[in-house]
Write a protein that binds this DNA or RNA. Structure first.
Lengths: 231, 231
DNA sequence: TCGCCGGCAAACGTCCGATGTATCTATAGT
DNA sequence: ACTATAGATACATCGGACGTTTGCCGGCGA
């Protein structure tokens, strides 16, 4: 299984070395195949792998290009990986979020602008208005935390936490919250975080975020326990 | 660009739904192709993508199987992604480590066993003995932090931090350290962390880890500045 | 001169069939 | 019971062919 994997490694090292900078165009597949000493089929598999990793951008009828290599692209794969984790490891993910998200939220308290706060207040309002719609709650919850973290200006951090808070994971937590009649309380936790951020209080923001993650973790445990009891 | 990507999505959803549990064997490629309504070439590209993501394990002459889906496998891709990040985003990675690694080290202080501490002491000794060998320093440095984090028992956390501390990133920092005659001081920072861990002092471990990451970040800035001045 | 439109060429998307090679298995022999 | 060999199975790689999309450019008309 060497040829195709070698091709992947070669292309990757060409990018890493700067020989193929962001935006660069790769030779056409047949030429690339000749250059690397394998058939076009093998090249296609290699390119497909790098495309799925958001390293290459394949434009049909045009050519294959190196992406911007921005963190938001390269770290996107983390999300799909987390979606595939088994149930018992989701608690590990929560423990990571418990460590990272409060720190990030605290940092956001220092860097947030008034405009950011206004946007956040709007999301909070939307969330309250959607208290009966699980789908919308998940959507606004995602937007709330993403907006907070994004204000740190750290795209790597944002992508990482986005990936760790996958849609399936959030959906499970909210299912538990709603069935446990605790949606309202959790919405208020967002309000608490919002107040801390508006006060630019780093420690308070950090603490309220920790409480919030802890609540999510508790409900995840409930949901997982119920599932393992059923199945 | 639908057929192959559809195949990827289908296989992934079959795994996520539990239809293909860890260890399960997939049908042979020709059969899989027929089942999904595309040619074998397309199936191979799909399988290759999932294999590169450590979701599938392809055994030549045998068949294709679902991996254990352990975090250590699925999060492995993070490492290669970080290796491809551009220089200016490496500081973002350092900021994430600055938040996450101290928390994780503090947690390790609570969970470490005596055997873990002995192993760590040995690594520290090795590091001191290798003070002139950059290659070995990097190796022992990696081992030191990996060992600490691994004692948290959180495989997801360990894989994540391993990925964020890619080999290239570490090599750059140590190059700066050595050229700046600061290798010795940094080795002592490891000693400080070690003492805090041995004392099971969470806060002290956290603080010493933060200082250590901060030192790494400072030297990374130096190295990056020198590079951008050269180039 | 500007803008729309159609055709040409380049490049990726998909398919098919064939051959090489590694692995597993079952059978036969000791 | 154990080993060795032969067959079957399944992935690895190849080569070529054809469809489809895209980008580009020249021509036409306002």
């Amino acid at each position: 299984m060497a040829l195709t994997d070698d091709a992947i490694a070669k292309i990757r090292s060409m990018i890493q070395s700067g020989e193929l900078p962001p935006g660069a165009r790769l030779p056409p597949e047949p030429q690339l195949a000749a250059q690397m000493g394998l058939s076009r089929s093998g090249v296609r598999e290699a390119v497909k792998v790098l495309e799925s990793a958001r390293v290459l951008d394949v434009r049909r009828g045009d050519g294959t290009y190196v992406t911007s290599l921005a963190p938001r692209l390269l770290l996107q794969g983390l999300g799909v990986a987390v979606e595939l984790l088994r149930d018992d490891t989701l608690l590990e993910v929560m423990e990571v979020r418990r460590m990272l998200e409060p720190m990030a939220t605290g940092l956001a308290a220092l860097r947030m602008t008034d405009a950011d706060l206004d946007e956040l207040g709007q999301i909070l309002e939307d969330m309250r208005a959607a208290a009966d719609d699980a789908e919308k709650l998940i959507q606004f919850d995602t937007a709330f935390h993403h907006t907070v973290i994004a204000t740190t200006g750290n795209e790597t951090l944002t992508s990482l936490l986005d990936g760790l808070s996958g849609r399936t994971l959030r959906a499970r937590v909210w299912r538990g919250l709603i069935e446990g009649n605790s949606a309202h309380q959790t919405i208020e936790e967002h309000h608490t975080i919002y107040l801390a951020l508006r006060a630019r209080d780093q420690l308070l923001a950090q603490a309220s975020a920790l409480l919030h993650v802890n609540t999510s973790e508790a409900w995840l445990r409930t949901v997982l326990a119920a599932k393992s009891a059923d199945g």
